[in-house]
C-alpha cells in the first residue's frame, strides 16, 4: 500500500495535495483497494464549493458504495472528467491519474493526517 509522503490525509481516506492556495483531492490507495473495482464516481461541478469534512460526492464499486468527504474547504476549480468514462483510473492510479477534483482553498486545512499517521490508521482498520 502506497502513502506518498508529500500528501495530507483525512480519516475518511481522502488525500489532498496542497500547493499554495490550491489542492488536488483524491482517495487513497487503501480506500480504492477496499472498495474494489470502481464503476462510478460522482463529483461536484466546477464552481461548487465544498466544505472540509462535508460530503462532496460518492464513489461506487460493484459491491460497495461510499460517500466522499472533502478534506479541505474551497471552491472547485477542476474535476477529473476522464473518470466519467474510465472510473478504473482510481484503481489503477489513485494518487495520480485517478485524482478527483481540484479546489481553491479557503481557510486553513485542519485535522489532516501526515503520511505516517495515515498509514497507522489504515493498518488499524485493515483487519
Amino acid at each position: 500500500m502506497k502513502t506518498p509522503e508529500n500528501l495530507l490525509y483525512s480519516k475518511s481516506h481522502e488525500w489532498a495535495d496542497i500547493d499554495g492556495d490550491t489542492a488536488v483531492i483524491g482517495i487513497t490507495d487503501f480506500a480504492q483497494e477496499l472498495l474494489g473495482d470502481i464503476t462510478f464516481v460522482e463529483l461536484p461541478a466546477v464552481g461548487d464549493t465544498v466544505a472540509a469534512g462535508a460530503e462532496m460526492g460518492s464513489i461506487e464499486s460493484v459491491k460497495a458504495a461510499s460517500e466522499l468527504y472533502a478534506p479541505v474547504s474551497g471552491e472547485v476549480i477542476a474535476v477529473n472528467e476522464a473518470l466519467e468514462d474510465a472510473p478504473e483510473k482510481v484503481n489503477e492510479s489513485a494518487f495520480e491519474d485517478g485524482w478527483l477534483i481540484k479546489v481553491r482553498i479557503s481557510g486553513e486545512p485542519k485535522d489532516l493526517l501526515s503520511a505516517t499517521e495515515y498509514a497507522e490508521l489504515a493498518a488499524s482498520e485493515d483487519h
Binding site: D37, T39, F40, E60, S61, V62, K63, P87, E88
Partner: peptide, 11 residues
C-alpha cells in the same frame, strides 16, 4: 455460464 464479469456490466 461461468462466473460473470460484474464490473464490466456496471461500467
Amino acid at each position: 455460464v461461468r462466473r460473470l464479469d460484474e464490473t464490466k456490466a456496471a461500467r
